[in-house]
Design a protein around this nucleic acid. Structure first.
Length: 1128
RNA sequence: GCUCAAGUGGCGGAAUUGGUAGACGCGCUGGAUUCAAAAUCCAGUUCUUUCGGGAGUGUGGGUUCGAUUCCCACCUUGAGUACCA
């Protein structure tokens, strides 16, 4: 009997389905093992050979684990909400559910035919209401939760409400919106219900907000950051613009640190972890505030003096004002000297002298920052006077002023030092005056240690402060610059990183430590969306700042000891010591960081901070084919529908496009309102905003359903729970997850986020959903190209014929690949051919130019030797234009194509359909071959020709059991050699599976079958275990031969053979004898021979003497059981 | 630019606690079988050679008795990321 894959495979696929062979139980004495594939989106094109790669690998592992005695859960389902079905619906009007259903049928047929051991009784579909009921349920859990930073987990919103009721919100340490207003418990309790809801929304883990979103006009929807590539949509490549919209968002940022920490606990590929780490983008540094020194004229009055009022005198003002005037007219020498430095806003701020404050006349005061400067004469040295001064200072401080004192001597002797102290005091006063953003610039920096290297500041052109601080003189320039950058798209700005541009605002800030005046610039290298949209520029330590400073001729102070910064910035951290850095002098990076953050916090001008790049995830989509939100709106506030009324089923619509007034497609639905009395979805016409309210029109994004499906498989049919506690506790998490690396910062990050949330809320028992993850590499197509000629007539030649006449007889011509090696040769060959066939007039030959043009040929028309089926090519439906083409062939009359490896795609005619492979070679051959192609994680090209190797392996395996037409297996005792072959195969295959090195185990099988064929072995004792080894890879043939051996049960749970080392014990070793490390010959010696004996035997050997040619070796290295190396 | 990964025959790839480089398969060459083809089987297939041998794992250097494997520098390719302060 011949190996007939079609018959066998069909038979066993039916057997498995009928007997539910792979149905997993939710409890067993056996240990559990959960193997999962990333479930597919069922696209209309069906599967190509690249898709099953990961499924085959996971199936082998699942089957292996069953042999190893595990209770294996290996489910499959469909991520069936998605854009293609919706776009098809827009074009044809066919309901996406129908398209999806049809596609799923194709997928299921294709998957079944490959012989996967899926437990289909647990199938899930994200678009099934019974499934998305629970997606909606999770949304509600998120809505009803807040993130408590004190307990570092998500908690029920009721715990937050009770804190509000008893303490207000000032003690709450939560992840929430930025613009939180503080309130007391009394205030909370007096708030209206709407007001309370509004506040709670600022804390919920899913919340509504006006976010600037990535709006894609062509797709009519909002896209997440990871759905945009290079400024255009990932799908379709349409332009994306920024737009403000009210959207649901998920507070994933609350989990930034835990998502990062969790990576250390899971066995995932390093590159994937790296990209998640990168995406989360943790940077440790500090927030630093720089006071703004100069406000343009007019601003100061309105903003500060009027507010404070400069008439700050007390009840006795009328009397004192005369005294003050007198003092003003008779200043001391020191007062006069200092006034020269302070008057006319020389330090950027308005000072007054001999000014009344309450019942005191102070020497100098900056009302804007409430800073008083006293210059004291000698009489202040008396104890009595000092006591009075202290009392006076205290009263002034109580009024909110800072007081600094100098002696006459200080002012006259060291005016510079005095000014410096005043500047510092101003900086400090400016920050503590608590007037918010308006008069200071906050920056985030990862290098606060380099703060003394700051020589300017740069704001993003979009920064809100720009318009407030820009001076009259600079206004024109600055506005022109802002306009210019706004015109450039985000994409242009990113692409063009070389051009340095910016503008000076004319304003200055104060260095918080040195008190120096520093220029404030704007520049588009600073992004409004990261950090605070402003940077402290340290040109000596950051290349971008350096380039900017060089370009605009801003000073570049050096703060690195012994480092040359004449050509580039010095960005290393290392052990370089700081200099010109005041209290940081002499400190290396790490110490300086600690010290400076300590100082920043002590002086209240900044604080240590960790910044994340990870943004909250927008959760609304303006699409039809997605999960509806269980939300309706009452007084513009979202109301959650009680979980017991779920699912809220997607309504029917006439059109799947957005409505004419720009609402999402659900705006077309006529039955899409919520009746709070009947708790059901009713006609829109019933909306009265009293008992019937409009429902949310957005739907959830694609990642909603895929963020928790792995939990659903554990208890897929449960209609009253997300999944039962018993099932969740039993299966816990996925043990092995296989899928593509393209989901690194999408699905895999969101799923981890939801799992952590569900864990916090005690819904799932573990906080990472997948212990181990493997990214299978892509299978690439091997495209075939044929060379077609392109004919041109050279210009500028005066002849009596038109160009068309010259070339009119030249046919479409293809040239075989090996006929030429250069463009010139190509042209010659073609011309000779044409002249030969009289298709080209020799007189015009020189006027004609011929070049080659490679075009795709369908790979199904090319054989393993790269020969094209010429007739097939001519008659191919896609090659209508080439029906009458001519072909210049090789000497042996074949036509060769040239090959190139590309991504598998319809447009490249290199797609190989697994249906064809299964038909011709069978699923077992397909499975073996996909594994044999190369390492699982690696991208590798597909070449159908290679499959003949694994196909003949299967035939050889079959033949071991057959003597001609007769099944014949012997019960005789195996020989030593046969046992050796078996056991080394067991050992290697087991190691390989554990290491996911499936390609090498396939070659191990081939070696084993080749050896057993040579040994003419047909012994049951050898062949039975061999079948079990092979069955995970080629389950159909294994089942068939197993049943022919007389078994009635499936091979799938037969115990994996046990390796016994005793069969591999050898008595001799074929020693490699090398000279200076180069192996020259081998020598068979007993393994128990001692080192000395080996050396003696080897040295005495005539080949050794021949190698040495009379020389005496310097040294002989003998490693018993391994090698002999002779040096000399 | 940065980060990571990888460079081995005509091709996919194998071999790493440092110990016989090229397993296994494709392709190719020759042979057997056949009227012929398919299929099957046998032999060969890194390069070079004066048939003794010699060289060889991207390039150059280093460590070692011995390096595809470890270290340094460089080159190339691929992937990810991108003005993240």
């Amino acid at each position: 009997m011949q190996y007939n894959h079609q018959e066998i495979e069909k038979k066993w696929q039916e057997f498995w389905a009928k007997n539910q062979t792979f149905k997993a139980k939710n409890n067993a004495d056996k240990p559990k093992y959960y193997v999962l594939d990333m479930f597919p989106y069922p696209s209309g094109a069906g599967l190509h050979v690249g898709h099953p790669l990961g499924y085959i690998a996971s199936d082998i592992y699942a089957r292996y684990k069953r042999h190893k005695g595990f209770n294996v859960l290996h489910p499959q389902g469909y991520d069936s909400f998605g854009l293609p079905a919706e776009q098809y619906a827009i074009l044809t009007g066919q309901h996406p559910a129908k398209t999806t259903e049809e596609n799923i049928k194709t997928y299921r047929r294709q998957l079944d035919q490959i012989g996967f051991s899926f437990d289909w009784s647990r199938e899930v579909r994200t678009s099934n209401p019974e499934y998305y009921k629970w997606t909606q349920w999770i949304f509600i859990q998120l809505f009803n939760s807040w993130y408590n930073k004190n307990t570092n987990k998500a908690e029920d919103i009721s715990t937050l409400i009770s804190i509000f009721e008893s303490n207000g919100n000032t003690t709450v340490n939560a992840v929430c919106d930025e613009d939180i207003v503080s309130f007391s418990s009394d205030e909370w309790n007096s708030f209206s219900s709407t007001k309370k809801q509004e506040i709670l929304l600022q804390y919920r883990l899913t919340f509504l907000s006006d976010t600037e979103v990535n709006w894609c006009p062509a797709l009519g929807t909002v896209l997440a950051n990871d759905e945009i590539v290079n400024g255009v949509s990932e799908r379709g490549g349409h332009p994306v613009v920024r737009k403000k919209m009210t959207q649901w968002s998920m507070r994933i940022s609350a989990y930034a640190q835990r998502l990062l920490d969790g990576l250390n606990t899971i066995d995932w590929p390093q590159p994937l972890k790296d990209s998640q780490t990168n995406w989360i983008g943790r940077s440790q540094g500090a927030m630093v505030s720089f006071p703004i020194l100069t406000f343009p004229k007019g601003k100061e009055k309105s903003d500060s003096e009027n507010e404070l009022g400069y008439m700050t005198g007390g009840n006795n003002s009328a009397l004192l004002i005369e005294k003050a005037k007198e003092n003003r007219n008779n200043p001391t020498k020191a007062e006069s000297a200092l006034w020269q430095q302070l008057k006319g806003k020389k330090l950027g701020l308005k000072f007054r002298r001999q000014h009344l404050i309450d019942d005191f006349i102070v020497d100098f005061v900056c009302l804007q920052l409430k800073l008083i400067i006293e210059v004291d004469g000698d009489y202040h040295n008396t104890e009595e006077q000092q006591e009075k001064d202290n009392e006076r200072t205290k009263i002034l401080e109580d009024l909110g002023y800072d007081v600094i004192r100098f002696t006459n001597q200080q002012v006259i002797g060291d005016i510079e030092g005095v000014l410096k102290k005043i500047k510092q005091a101003l900086a400090k006063a400016s920050l503590s005056s608590g007037k918010g953003l308006r008069d200071r610039i906050d920056v985030f920096t990862t290098r606060p240690d380099t703060i003394f290297g700051v020589s300017f500041m740069t704001l993003a052109p979009e920064h809100e402060l720009v318009s407030q601080i820009v001076t009259e003189e600079q206004k024109r320039k600055v506005n022109a610059y802002i306009e210019a950058t706004a015109k450039r798209s985000e994409r242009d700005r990113m692409a063009d990183v070389k051009t340095i541009s910016g503008a000076f605002t004319g304003a200055y800030a104060i260095h918080p430590f040195s008190g120096e005046k520093i220029q404030i610039w704007i520049g588009d290298y600073v992004l409004a969306s990261y950090g605070t949209g402003a940077v402290m520029a340290v040109p000596c330590g950051d290349q971008r700042d350096y380039d900017f400073a060089k370009h605009f001729k801003i000073p570049i102070p050096n703060i690195f000891d012994g480092v040359d910064i004449s050509t580039a910035a010095f960005a290393e951290k290392g052990n370089t010591k700081l200099t010109n850095s005041d209290f940081l002098n002499g400190l290396p990076y790490k110490k300086a960081m600690k010290t400076v953050i300590y100082e920043l916090e002590k002086r209240r001008i900044g604080y240590g901070k960790i910044n994340y790049r990870l943004r909250d995830a927008v959760f609304s989509r303006q699409r039809y084919w997605g999960e509806p939100f269980p939300v309706y709106y009452k007084d513009a506030m979202p109301q959650i529908i009680d979980t017991k009324h779920l699912p809220i089923v997607l309504p029917e619509v006439e059109k799947y496009l957005p409505t004419e007034d720009g609402k999402p497609p659900l705006g077309n639905a006529e039955v899409w309102a919520w009746d709070t009395e009947t708790n059901s979805v009713v006609e829109n016409s019933k909306i009265n905003n009293k008992t019937v309210f409009p429902l949310e029109l957005n739907t959830m994004p694609g990642w909603a359903g895929s963020s928790w499906y792995f939990n659903r498989y554990m208890d897929a049919k449960n209609s009253h729970e997300f999944a039962s506690k018993e099932a969740l506790d039993y299966w816990k998490e996925v043990d092995l997850y296989i899928g593509g690396s393209e989901h690194a910062t999408g699905h895999l990050l969101y799923a981890r986020f939801w799992q952590k949330f569900l864990f916090d809320r005690n819904i799932v028992p573990v906080d990472e959903f997948a212990k181990k993850l493997i990214n299978q590499g892509m299978i690439l197509g091997t495209s075939a190209f044929v060379y077609k000629i392109s004919v041109f007539v050279k210009n500028g030649c005066a002849i009596d014929k038109s160009n068309d006449d010259i070339i009119e007889n030249i046919p479409t011509l293809f040239v075989s690949k090996n006929l030429f090696s250069s463009d010139d040769e190509f042209e010659n060959i073609v011309k000779n051919y044409l002249l030969d066939k009289k298709l080209l007039n020799p007189n015009y030959s020189d006027l004609v130019m011929i070049t080659k043009n490679a075009i795709h040929a369908d790979v199904s028309l090319v054989n393993a030797s790269d020969e094209l089926d010429i007739e097939g090519f001519k008659n191919h439906p896609l090659n209508q234009d080439y029906k009458n083409a001519e072909f210049i062939t090789e000497k042996d009359n074949t036509f060769k194509v040239y090959r190139e490896v590309e991504k598998m795609s319809k447009s490249k005619y290199n797609v190989v359909n697994p249906d064809d492979i299964c038909e011709e070679y069978g699923a077992d051959a397909l499975r073996l071959f996909e594994m044999f192609l190369g390492p699982l994680e690696q991208a590798k090209p597909w070449k159908t020709s290679g499959i003949s190797g694994v196909y003949s392996f299967l035939k050889k395996l079959w033949k071991l059991f057959y003597n001609g037409e007769k099944f014949e297996v012997s019960d005789a005792t195996p020989t030593k050699d046969e046992l050796k072959t078996l056991h080394k195969t067991i050992k290697k295959v087991e190691e390989d599976i554990e290491n996911f090195s499936f390609n090498t185990s396939v070659s191990t099988f081939m070696i084993a079958v080749n050896e057993l064929t040579t040994q003419k072995c047909n012994k049951r004792e050898i062949l039975e275990p061999l079948l079990v080894l092979i069955s995970p890879y080629a389950p159909h043939i294994a089942e068939e031969l197993w049943s022919q051996l007389g078994y009635t049960e499936s091979i799938s749970t037969v115990t994996f053979p046990k390796f016994d080392a005793k069969h591999l014990v050898e008595s001799t070793k074929n020693y490699p004898i090398s000279f200076n490390g180069k192996m020259r010959f081998t020598l068979e010696l007993p393994l128990d021979m001692s080192k000395d004996e080996i050396e003696k035997t080897v040295m005495a050997h005539k080949k050794t003497q021949a190698q040495l040619q009379g020389r005496t070796p310097k040294k002989v290295i003998v490693v018993p059981g391994k090698i002999v190396n002779i040096v000399g």
